Computed example of a mutant assay.
Amino acid sequence: MQPHLDRIMTSLVDTPQTITEIPKQLMQDQNTTNMLDALRTVPGISIAAGEGAQQGDNLSIRGFNAQNDFYRDGMLDFGSYYRDPFDLETVEVLKGPSGSLFGRGSTGGVINEVTKRAGMTPVTAGTLSFGTDGTQRLTADIG
């Protein structure tokens, strides 16, 4: 399987990094509602609970802080906010030095969010979720 990154022009076997891909179907099967839930089962990722007064998706890859190592379709997605994976096709985790592919990043690696692409077939889908403490969530995908 070839990663969605245009920067990697070789086969996955020849890539000098460990790449873990989390497909849309797995995120749907696990009822993923935030990026940390999507990444929870990836080996080498540690989820932080806001230590150091940091907000947003706060995690580390292979022991290195990766809060600023998020990419969206290969472009830097800088910001301290909580990401919602409702519009993603897949999430790619590249473990290892990322400077050779991205020009920057921590030693631990990067997370690339691959967004959904437009297609020729009509799409109508949605979810409605309720939870404790007044949690409500509605998503719609119409195209």
Results as ranks from 00 to 15, higher is better:
L138P: 11
Y82N: 15
D73Y: 02
R83I: 09
G50C: 03
E89T: 08
T124L: 09
I61M: 08
Q17F: 14
I8Y: 11
S129P: 02
L12K: 15
T127Q: 13
T41C: 06
Y71W: 01
M35W: 00
T90A: 15
A125Y: 11
T135R: 07
V13L: 09
V110A: 10
P97M: 09
N65V: 02
L101A: 01
V123I: 07
F78P: 01
A38C: 04
P3D: 12
G143Q: 09
Q25H: 05
S46T: 15
T124E: 00
A140Y: 09
S98C: 07
Q17C: 05
M1Y: 14
S129E: 12
I19E: 07
V91L: 05
L5Y: 11
K95N: 00
L59Q: 07
K116G: 02
T32I: 11
E113F: 08
P23T: 09
R117V: 10
G105K: 05
Y82M: 04
G131A: 11
G119I: 10
G63Y: 04
L128V: 15
G96N: 02
F64H: 02
L101R: 07
D6A: 13
I8V: 14
G103I: 12
P43R: 05
V114W: 00
A66P: 04
R104Q: 11
G74N: 04
D57E: 03
G96A: 10
E21K: 13
T18C: 08
T32K: 00
L36K: 02
Q67L: 06
F78G: 01
V13Q: 07
Q28W: 12
I19T: 10
E92G: 05
E21R: 13
R40G: 03
G143S: 14
L59Y: 08
G109P: 00
R72P: 00
D84N: 09
G79Y: 04
S46G: 11
T107A: 13
L5P: 00
S100M: 10
Q2S: 07
S60P: 02
M120F: 04
Q55N: 12
F86E: 09
V93N: 01
G134T: 12
G119Q: 06
L138E: 08
F130A: 10
Q136T: 15
T124H: 12
S60T: 15
T132V: 13
M27K: 05
G108Y: 13
R137K: 11
G126I: 06
I45V: 06
F78Y: 11
R137F: 15
P122H: 14
D29N: 12
L26M: 14
D37F: 03
A49H: 12
